[in-house]
């Protein structure tokens, strides 16, 4: 990548690092924060679709609902719950950051520290959250009940 030909700017671009004094968006943490926001948003939308339909079974019969909801109670499903909580929490925190960038006069200046802040908050919530759910999952799986 150390070439000094006319192609070097394009190469740095494709190599994905923020050269040119941090003016390149491509490959910058800011780009990845957007990619993650998009992926989590789409995944949560798909789950919303499934979740409205499974809940709609309360309108069919108590038994139909209880039988289907039982699948969510398998201990292994704590992993799914963790994935959902992690995705929604990231999307929510980053959504707040996007709004601050849009509406707060200093938002663009602090967009990067705000990214590290929301990631820290995410970890602070997810570490005890994961611990709690995983312990519960293991207890259900091996404790027998």
């Amino acid at each position: 990548m150390a070439s000094t030909t006319a192609h070097s700017a394009g190469a740095a671009d494709r190599a994905g690092n923020a050269r040119l004094g941090g003016t390149l968006y491509r490959g910058d943490p800011g780009m990845w924060s957007w990619v993650a926001h998009r992926i989590t948003g789409v995944l949560v939308f798909f789950f919303l679709f499934v979740h409205v339909l499974d809940t709609a079974l309360v309108r069919v019969s108590p038994n139909a609902y209880d039988v289907v909801i039982e699948t969510y109670k398998h201990p292994v499903m704590v992993l799914f719950e963790l994935g959902l909580v992690g995705a929604v929490l990231y999307h929510a925190l980053n959504g707040i950051r996007v709004m601050l960038v849009d509406f707060w006069s200093k938002g663009t200046k602090y967009q990067k520290p705000m990214l590290w802040t929301i990631l820290a908050i995410w970890l602070v919530v997810m570490i005890p959250g994961s611990y709690y759910l995983l312990v519960k999952g293991f207890a259900d799986l091996f404790g027998g009940s």
Binding site: P62, N63, Y65, I69, M77, G129, L133
Partner: peptide, 14 residues
């Protein structure tokens, strides 16, 4: 739904 009381374990029609 997931963390208070017994989380999903307590969810049913009632």
């Amino acid at each position: 739904m997931l963390f208070l009381d017994d989380g999903v374990q307590r969810i049913n029609f009632a």
